[in-house]
């Protein structure tokens, strides 16, 4: 191999590594989110009063509802990423779709863990086939399948994952909106009925969760971008004969 190609690959490598430092804004966002999450957790246990019917179990609500909101926030994100990827075939949309899928799985899992703990106390059983429970479960299950496919399907896994993410969102929406007949046992929106101290705790928790979500999304998108850059670099290096 000529010294010239080696030099050009070297230069490309140097160019890429300059982008590796964590952006200060991402750092700041992550730290703020972490601090607020800690404060929110403290407020949940020591500041917000005990609810008179449900008692201590009601405190799950401060984590359950923000998680559910964020899961719903991730859905349009991955739907957009998937549609854009299927049309334009650019990796950045695939990263967006993948990040959305992972965040929806993470927060969906939180919803599905905290929900039954609350349900055991309120309904006497962990699980009922209620509309919201079903639509959440359907979405999380499909998205997990989507991640599995992405990992094992081979060459056109990205397309398949995008299609599946889209179907998952569509399916959850279908279940959620069309089933007015389905007898819902899930509690209705009760934020208006909260005590002031409960409200403060709740909204701080919502804020903290959203910031954490933003930081994770950012970090995940950055990771995708860096990974693509690394793949390209690897290809360049192989082409230049640097495969050892």
């Amino acid at each position: 191999m000529s010294a010239e190609t080696l030099a050009s690959v070297n230069e490309a490598l140097f160019d890429r590594t300059r982008g590796l430092k964590t952006p200060p804004a991402l750092m700041a966002l992550s730290v703020t989110a972490a601090v607020l999450l800690a404060v929110a957790a403290w407020m949940v246990f020591f500041y917000a009063p005990l609810e008179k019917e449900m008692g201590f179990v009601q405190k799950i609500f401060y984590f359950h509802v923000p998680s559910a909101w964020i899961m719903l926030l991730s859905a349009p994100l991955m739907a957009f990423g998937s549609v854009a990827y299927l049309i334009k075939r650019q990796d950045k949309y695939d990263h967006l779709s993948d990040a959305g899928v992972e965040l929806a799985i993470l927060f969906g899992a939180l919803v599905l863990i905290t929900g039954p703990l609350w349900g055991r106390k309120a309904w006497g059983v962990y699980w009922v086939w209620d509309v919201r429970l079903t639509s959440t479960l359907v979405m999380v299950l499909t998205l997990v399948a989507c991640k599995i496919v992405r990992g094992y399907a081979g060459p056109n896994a990205k397309q398949i994952a995008a299609g599946l993410a889209l179907l998952a969102v569509l399916n959850a929406t279908f279940v959620y909106f069309s089933v007015d007949l389905w007898k819902g046992t899930h509690p209705p929106k009760l934020i208006q009925t909260l005590e002031p101290q409960m409200k403060q705790t709740f909204w701080l928790s919502v804020l903290a969760f959203h910031l954490a979500w933003g930081a994770m999304l950012w970090a995940r998108l950055r990771m995708g971008k860096l990974r693509s850059a690394l793949d390209r670099l690897h290809m360049q290096a192989t082409e230049a004969g640097l495969d050892d």
Partner: peptide
């Protein structure tokens, strides 16, 4: 294997 994994969650409704 993948077909079964992706089909059943979507078929749940």
């Amino acid at each position: 294997v993948l077909l079964a994994i992706v089909l059943y969650p979507l078929m749940l409704p």
